[in-house]
Write a protein that binds this DNA or RNA. Sequence first.
DNA 1: TGACAGAACGAACGATCGTTCTAAATTAGG
DNA 2: CCTAATTTAGAACGATCGTTCGTTCTGTCA
Lengths: 201, 201
Amino acid sequence: MRKGQLTRQAILQRAVQLASKVGLAGLTIGTLADDLELSKSGLFAHFQSKEALQLKTLEFAAASFVDLVVRPALAAPRGVPRVRAVFESWLDWPRRDPLQGGCFFVAAASELDDRPGALRDRLVAMQKDWLELITNTVRTAILEGHLHPALDPEQFAHDLYGIMLAYHHASRLLADPEAERRARRAFDRLLLSARSAPSGN
Amino acid sequence: MRKGQLTRQAILQRAVQLASKVGLAGLTIGTLADDLELSKSGLFAHFQSKEALQLKTLEFAAASFVDLVVRPALAAPRGVPRVRAVFESWLDWPRRDPLQGGCFFVAAASELDDRPGALRDRLVAMQKDWLELITNTVRTAILEGHLHPALDPEQFAHDLYGIMLAYHHASRLLADPEAERRARRAFDRLLLSARSAPSGN
DNA sequence: TGACAGAACGAACGATCGTTCTAAATTAGG
DNA sequence: CCTAATTTAGAACGATCGTTCGTTCTGTCA
């Protein structure tokens, strides 16, 4: 009853790595089994279908994101420092989890944005949770008096997401060495306008 | 000698639509042939390999993007109006090409960002061209005196890309009805800081 | 109209997909 | 240590993948 859980974890960990390269749909039980030196059927037995494997993989990736990115960021003091910590922690994610190729969720998002089903529903819920957490962090910063009262926290979260997506695009696809500097500049500008500008957003 | 080219075009058009949903890797000769009511081998004969088909599909999508988005935008008067036209034209893309599900290039980018090869190389070149075109448009706006001389045009292009990626994410995956408004607000803020702020970027 | 090139087809290939079954190996508890 | 339960392996399934082959249509131009 213990050994099973162990290999299950190992399978999921490898599945996340693999899916971050080839996507959730590109995941293949055969190659996954070969990578782990398991038999196809042996691996399959742990899940009852491929979709179940994909779903568990999605959950596993989310849990690891929370551990590596979200939780550390929330340790920062409330207000702008925590907002900044979210950004820095997020930006630092590739270094904290160096096994992956590209962001798992970016891959999943572009795959699932047109394929209804349980997988998509789960991913959407996750993304909304994450956006809401950012929104609340910003909202707190407003209440602390760190950011302008007229600031729209949801717009801030949306814009921050865009910064991260652009960073991913520039660094992963274009291999732009300036990607990180660009992301920091964009974030600084976002934060600056959030401090004092009622017009911006 | 004429009939062939015609069906070739039809194949590629359908391929772009399909690939915007399932990705370039998810493209399947069998399903594509069924969709077009062609035989698998008949379709295959037009290209000599699947990778060739994918490459041609990529080229076709790029050409259509130029026709529908780039060219109209460049008709606007130089300077900020043209910058704004690029944004508006880009944002309006889904309405101009309503057949697609999600952005073809977003799907391709997240698929190919970790898979070296001719496909990736071509896509990277395209993206760089597009970014460079935006950069030059911005640069012109600076020379016209519309934007601040200290503005970094490449950063502007990068940030604009982020806005579009966030828009795509919000509208496609999250089905957020505010997506377009959010994109407009982000663009306005970007443009505002580009007009007068030497600090932002 | 006849001839020839080009376009489309149908069948088949080896490989791999997800999945199912049964048997063997391994593990855990009494 | 033995037994029962769990975990893995192996073989096979129907389907589909990309690709090849030879053949049959179908347009095009002399």
